[in-house]
Nucleic acid binder design. Structure first.
Lengths: 109, 109
DNA sequence: TCCATAGTTTTATAATTATGGAAATAAAAA
DNA sequence: TTTTTATTTCCATAATTATAAAACTATGGA
């Protein structure tokens, strides 16, 4: 991963609204959520939400698919994991710096 | 972790210069690097570097200690790992979304 | 004591990013 | 075909963040 991409991803997460959206999507699994579903938890004007979703998509952290009038957004787990790996690359000089940061799946519904 | 703190941490990493500094420190291990050592790889004006180090410190991702005329900065691995854990919290609806993102220590020097 | 070195603070300016109303697009329902 | 619903794009304004020169602080030599 290039530093430029990492900065783009981190920037897209570095905003309270977008981080909230991303975490919703991370927890929603592969099916994702429609824009309306995302917004029912957020309460922000549609153009603002759309702007933030676009930022996340541009950074590659989420993808979207059309389904009729709806657009479903889903977390891109691969991109997320690449970002996390980039941050910890070659860390801590061989000392053990911490427990694993696995992507631990939540409880199955 | 509160979303507010996570945003602060992510914002501090969402800048090419700061991300570069942080990764240097992550790889430098617990001993850290002096400001001058950090800068020998970066080539930026001292006030700019100082500004960025302060941002990282304010976010809690790095700490510093004085030693004579020098100030050594070191990565805060605990904070880093908490941030990574926050991003992946309850992810992916019980599907397995990816390989672990361990903090894998680099080769010991 | 005087000077050089290491780093920070202050501050004005420049650059970037976010917000949300109004208008636009596109698909389904009436 | 008209209307409604879902969402985006456009765009002007507001808010935030970054840059680096100048001045400052602190420590360790000479």
């Amino acid at each position: 991963m290039e530093i430029f991409e990492a900065v783009k991803s981190l920037s897209s997460l570095a905003h309270e609204t977008r981080l909230g959206i991303f975490r919703q999507l991370v927890q929603a699994g592969a099916a994702g959520l429609s824009v309306g579903e995302v917004n029912s938890a957020m309460q922000i004007p549609a153009p603002t939400l759309s702007f933030h979703l676009k930022e996340l998509a541009n950074a590659g952290l989420v993808t979207s698919r059309h389904e009729g009038r709806f657009i479903y957004y889903q977390a891109n787990y691969t991109a997320m994991n690449e970002l996390l790996a980039y941050l910890t690359e070659n860390c801590c000089q061989g000392e053990s710096c911490m427990p694993a940061n696995k992507c631990k799946p939540g409880a199955k519904r």
